[in-house]
Simulated scan of single mutants.
Amino acid sequence: MSVTLNPYLSFRDNAREAMAFYQSVFGGRLESSTFGDMNMAQDPAEADKIMHSSLTTDNGFVLMASDTPSSMALDEGSSYSISLSGDDGEKLRGYWDALLDGGQMTLPLEKAPWGDMFGMLNDKFGTSWMVSIAGQAS
């Protein structure tokens, strides 16, 4: 038996665009279904919106998302961040640069007091990211 924890992002009308962007950043296989595909569109104008999307990467990342129907509230708060961390500095810097394209840096990716390289940004879809590159062991 196994258990997984996956980020699941909610968007208002741009989940398809956001997930294509994340696929361009992380690679992997993107699968999406619309409200229309599942016969779940209460409003015919929302039939082409994403009911469920899943990006699975070669690194084992799984990122999920959907559009929130206009009949439902969407709280676009800043109470979460997705964290990318590890010791592959080149790969993590590449993710940082790609996620920053069109986004806004909130904390530069630089050496932190605890020895790691650390930075924070909000991508062009408003998703908050933290990137941490492990420092050299003493």
Results as ranks from 00 to 15, higher is better:
residue 1 M to I: 11
residue 3 V to P: 00
residue 5 L to F: 15
residue 8 Y to A: 09
residue 9 L to A: 09
residue 14 N to W: 02
residue 15 A to C: 15
residue 15 A to P: 11
residue 15 A to R: 08
residue 16 R to M: 08
residue 17 E to P: 11
residue 19 M to T: 05
residue 19 M to N: 08
residue 20 A to T: 13
residue 20 A to Y: 09
residue 21 F to T: 11
residue 24 S to I: 06
residue 27 G to S: 06
residue 28 G to D: 13
residue 29 R to V: 12
residue 32 S to A: 13
residue 32 S to Y: 05
residue 33 S to I: 15
residue 33 S to H: 02
residue 34 T to K: 07
residue 35 F to K: 14
residue 37 D to N: 14
residue 37 D to T: 12
residue 38 M to Q: 12
residue 40 M to F: 02
residue 40 M to V: 01
residue 40 M to A: 15
residue 42 Q to R: 12
residue 46 E to M: 10
residue 51 M to K: 08
residue 52 H to F: 11
residue 55 L to D: 03
residue 56 T to A: 15
residue 57 T to I: 12
residue 58 D to N: 10
residue 59 N to K: 10
residue 59 N to R: 05
residue 63 L to H: 10
residue 63 L to N: 08
residue 64 M to P: 06
residue 66 S to Y: 08
residue 67 D to I: 10
residue 70 S to Y: 03
residue 71 S to P: 04
residue 72 M to A: 13
residue 73 A to Q: 11
residue 76 E to R: 15
residue 79 S to A: 10
residue 84 L to N: 09
residue 84 L to H: 02
residue 84 L to Y: 06
residue 86 G to P: 01
residue 87 D to R: 05
residue 88 D to H: 02
residue 89 G to W: 00
residue 91 K to F: 09
residue 91 K to Q: 13
residue 95 Y to E: 12
residue 98 A to L: 02
residue 102 G to T: 11
residue 102 G to E: 08
residue 105 M to I: 04
residue 106 T to E: 15
residue 107 L to F: 01
residue 111 K to C: 03
residue 112 A to M: 08
residue 114 W to M: 06
residue 118 F to W: 14
residue 122 N to F: 03
residue 126 G to F: 12
residue 126 G to Q: 04
residue 129 W to C: 03
residue 129 W to Q: 03
residue 131 V to G: 08
residue 134 A to V: 14
residue 135 G to H: 01
residue 136 Q to C: 02
residue 136 Q to S: 14
residue 136 Q to K: 14
residue 137 A to L: 10
residue 138 S to R: 05
